[in-house]
Simulated assay, not measured.
Amino acid sequence: MERRTFLRTAVMGTSAAAFGGTLWRGAAHADPAQPGAGPYGALRAADANGIQLPAGFTSRIVARSGQKVAGTSYTWHNAPDGGACYADGTGWIYVSNSEINPSGGAGAIRFSATGAITSAYRILSSTRQNCAGGTTPWNTWLSCEEVDRGYVYETDPWGVKAAVRRDAMGRFKHEAAAADPVRKVVYLTEDVSDGCFYRFTPTTWGNLSAGKLEVLRMGSGTSGPVTWATVPDPSGASTATRNQVSGAKRFTGGEGCYYANDVCFFTTKGDNRVWKYDAAAQRLDLAYDDSLVTGGSAPLTGVDNVTGTASGDLYVAEDGGNMEICVITPADVVSPFLRIGGQSGSEITGPAFSPDGKRLYFSSQRGTSGSSSGGITYEVTGPFRA
C-alpha cells in the first residue's frame, strides 16, 4: 500500500512506568510527553546505510524485498510491515508482515546467538494487506489484515504449524493487537478515520477460536474513565463493528498497539497521538500529542508502529515525518532515537527488540524506491538501556 494520508482532525480534548517514572503506572494521569534530551544523546552523521544513530550504535541490513535473505533460499517479501521477536533457544526469530494486496502474508528470519542469520521462511500466505499485529503469551504471531472486514490470522513463528484464521476476533480493518495476560484479553486497533479500540476475551485463555468482542466507550475528551460494551455481530455482516454500539469512542486511524505492566499503549495517526489505557484503573489518557508540545516543534509526527523495553522506554515509528523512530521515556520526555535519510517516500515499520534487548529490528517499507518492492529490513545494535 502506498503512503496513507489522513487530514488532521481539529477536535481537541482535555488533556506509569513499569520500572519507574510516569509513562506507565504511578502518576498515571501525567501530562503528555514533551521534547527533551534523549537517553542516548544526539544523532550522529548518517552511516553507510543512511541511518543516523547516537554514539555507540551501529546498523546493518538483514533483508531486502525481492532478494534472497543472505545464506537462505527465501525471497524477502514486499512492503515489510509489523513485526516481533521470539526467543529460539539461544537465538531468536524476527517475524514480519507483508502489507500488499493480494498475497500479503508474513515471513520470518531466524538468528543464532551471535546474530548470524541461519534461515528464513514463509509463515503465512494468501492473505490481504497484512499490516501490523501482535504477539501472544503462548508464542504465536497475530497477523492482521488491514482491509474492510479483514481477519486476524494466528501464525507459528517457527513455520511448523499451519496458520489459523480467528473469526471470533472480528472482521474489520485490523491494524495491531496486544495481549494482556493479567485480564486474559487481546486489545485491537482499527485503521479507519472513525475507528474504535477493541478488546477480545477468549472463552479459554490460550485459545482464540471463540470469545467475546467488545468496544471501548468513553465520554468526550481525551482523558477519563472508560467502559466496555459487547459488539453484537463481530462478523460485521450487515453493520460495521464500529457502528454497532452507541457511544463507542472514535479514534482517527488506529495504528500500533503495545501492552506492558497493566498499560496498553496505542497510536492514532490522524491526530498524531499516543494513548495509554490503564487496564487496572480502566482509564484512558494521552501519553503524547504533537499539538500539545510546547516550546518548539514536535519531534514525533506520523505516529505508527510502537514497541517498548524493560526499562520502560516506548519506541514509536513514524509513517512519514522525519522518518524517525522516537523514544518516549518514563520521565515523559520524547526525542529521536534514529533517522533514515533519503527515503521520504517510505515509512518505518515493525520495530521489535531481540529477547535480550540488545538489538532493534525494523523496516523501511518502501525504501529508497518509494514502492512496495523496495522494502529494507534493518537491525540496530548498541547499548540499549536495560
Rank of each mutant, 00 (worst) to 15 (best):
E214I: 00
S311G: 03
D271M: 11
G345W: 03
S238Y: 10
W228S: 03
D233R: 10
L216Q: 01
C264G: 05
A287P: 07
D290L: 01
G342R: 05
A240L: 08
D319I: 15
T301V: 14
A310F: 06
I325P: 13
L286M: 14
D285A: 10
S238R: 11
E324T: 15
G221N: 00
P225G: 10
K276L: 14
A248G: 02
N305Y: 08
S297H: 01
S223I: 03
G295F: 09
Q343E: 07
G247E: 02
D285G: 08
V327R: 12
D313A: 03
T222D: 13
V333Y: 00
M218W: 04
G224T: 04
Q244D: 10
V263S: 12
E255I: 10
D313T: 13
V263W: 11
T230D: 13
F251C: 03
C326L: 00
S238D: 11
F265H: 14
Y315E: 07
G302F: 03
T252M: 10
P299S: 04
K269C: 14
A280D: 13
A260N: 15
S291A: 08
L216V: 07
A317L: 07
L213G: 00
G345L: 12
R242C: 13
C326P: 02
R250Q: 06
T307R: 07
A229V: 01
E324G: 15
F337R: 08
N322V: 12
V231A: 10
E214Y: 01
V226W: 04
W228F: 14
C264D: 13
T252D: 14
L300K: 07
K269Y: 05
G302D: 01
F251D: 04
S291W: 05
D313Q: 13
R339Y: 00
G236W: 10
T230H: 06
L213E: 07
W275T: 05
T239S: 10
T268V: 11
S223R: 14
D319P: 12
V327P: 12
T222E: 11
D332N: 14
T307V: 00
G308W: 02
D285Q: 14
G341N: 15
K269I: 15
R339D: 08
G224H: 00
A298M: 05
A260D: 08
D313Y: 09
L300T: 02
V327L: 01
V215L: 01
D262I: 13
M218A: 11
V316L: 08
V306Y: 13
T301I: 05
S297P: 00
G308H: 04
S223E: 11
T329P: 05
P234C: 13
V293N: 02
D278N: 11
T222G: 03
G296L: 04
P336N: 02
G321F: 07
Y259R: 15
A287F: 07
P225Q: 03
Q244F: 05
A279Y: 08
S335E: 03
E324V: 14
P330G: 04
L292N: 04
Q282H: 06
K249G: 03
G312P: 09
G253W: 07
G224F: 02
